[in-house]
Write a protein that binds this DNA or RNA. Structure first.
Lengths: 214, 214
DNA sequence: TGTACATCAGTGAACGCGCGTTCACTGATGTAC
DNA sequence: TGTACATCAGTGAACGCGCGTTCACTGATGTAC
């Protein structure tokens, strides 16, 4: 049986053929619309065109599906940050700016993943895979900030990881407060990108990494 | 009938006497434990010792109660920031640091309010009172940052409100990522206060508001 | 001070709903021979 | 190539549950006279 035989939902008769992925997609769509807490397994199954019991062939329970959305979210997140960094090409500072934009773009393009990653209340202790994926994403940020710091060897550098915490916190804060569709978006006549760029510029000046123009 | 006649729940027989407040308290307790999305009106009523129908004498529906938690949260938040600022005494910079600590302290001490304010998905457009309360809190931040900026009149100052957006975003990011009981708390050997203090120090240096020591 | 009465703030039963999950089942698939 | 059979991945009915909300009600309160 080939793909030509699939129906309009992508199913191949009695067997779906790709239900696991279809459920993850459905979950993302629902989380985007209703938030991580409002997502239900039953509705995801309905959206994928199968019975409410079918998901249990692929996920232990509701939380396991949610965790998988977070895990693949962290993986994609790490990939996109890594790609934006591009090994510091053309310059660490330019690449760093690209990473910031990639951070906000991910939160904008994949709000469901972002929500599952940071707002669903999943604990990293519950799943080693979740922990590994989250650690990898954070490691990208740490390597990026370390490389940027190295461009000004004798500047006022803060202890190792601290700089990456600041970058992460400000990016996260801007994404959740001022991102598209967020509550405070309307109050502010600037895009999230603009706010982050300006903030990082000031922050890097404060570290002596880029010169204070005057 | 005097207060002496109240029973162990604070009730005065058939009439509760202070149900509105008791429901708000119950809601905060539940939100703290289960998140804003997990809170139920029925459970709040149970916790307050009344029937599931009783809350409807005081709140239009579940969302109205949640909105009230957010509103009084914003009011208390604004009060605490204002008190920490203390009109810039003893010095704007010292007072600014106190405001930062007050921000994180509020998120730590009143996680339920903070959650209702920023994570419950309530729209400011749904309630003029909510909008007013949120605006007032943000106004405090704006006045504080403006006063701090004025201590270095000719520094590289960003346009008006931008600085307050940065301060807000970093505070919010740190509170939600690294605050007590938050997912990433375990990863980091620093307190939220320490991270924010260091971040603001660097940021203010970047603005030329405090000198770069070397 | 005492009484009639309007109003307030509760009760408890009931409604329909959607959820997570289990279970025995069955149709489809693929492999061994 | 054909057939028997194990396994896989679905079904659909059922379960118990808690929820938000409505409704007619009633006990308690407070006010007018």
């Amino acid at each position: 049986m080939t793909n030509r035989d699939r129906d309009e939902r992508g199913r191949r008769g009695y067997h779906h053929g790709n239900l696991r992925q279809a459920l993850l997609d459905a979950a993302r769509q629902l989380i985007k619309q209703q938030g991580a807490a409002g997502f239900s397994l039953t509705e995801a199954a309905r959206l994928a065109g199968v019975s409410a019991a079918a998901p249990y062939r692929h996920f232990r329970d509701r939380e396991a599906l949610l965790a998988q959305v977070a895990i693949s979210g962290f993986e994609q997140f790490a990939d996109r940050l890594e790609a934006a960094w591009n090994d510091g090409v053309p310059s660490p500072l330019q690449a760093f700016e690209n990473v910031g934009r990639a951070y906000l773009a991910f939160a904008r393009d994949e709000p469901a993943s972002y929500s599952a990653m940071f707002e669903a209340g999943l604990s990293v202790d519950d799943s080693p895979e979740l922990k590994a994926a989250a650690d990898r994403a954070f490691d990208v940020l740490r390597r990026v900030t370390a490389a940027v710091a190295q461009t000004a060897p004798q500047a006022n550098l803060p202890p190792g990881a601290l700089m990456s915490l600041h970058v992460w916190a400000m990016s996260h804060g801007i994404a959740t407060l001022f991102g598209d569709g967020k509550p405070c978006r309307g109050k502010v006549p600037l895009t999230a990108d603009e706010i982050l760029d300006a903030g990082m510029l000031i922050y890097l000046r404060g570290l002596g990494i880029i010169p204070t123009e005057k």
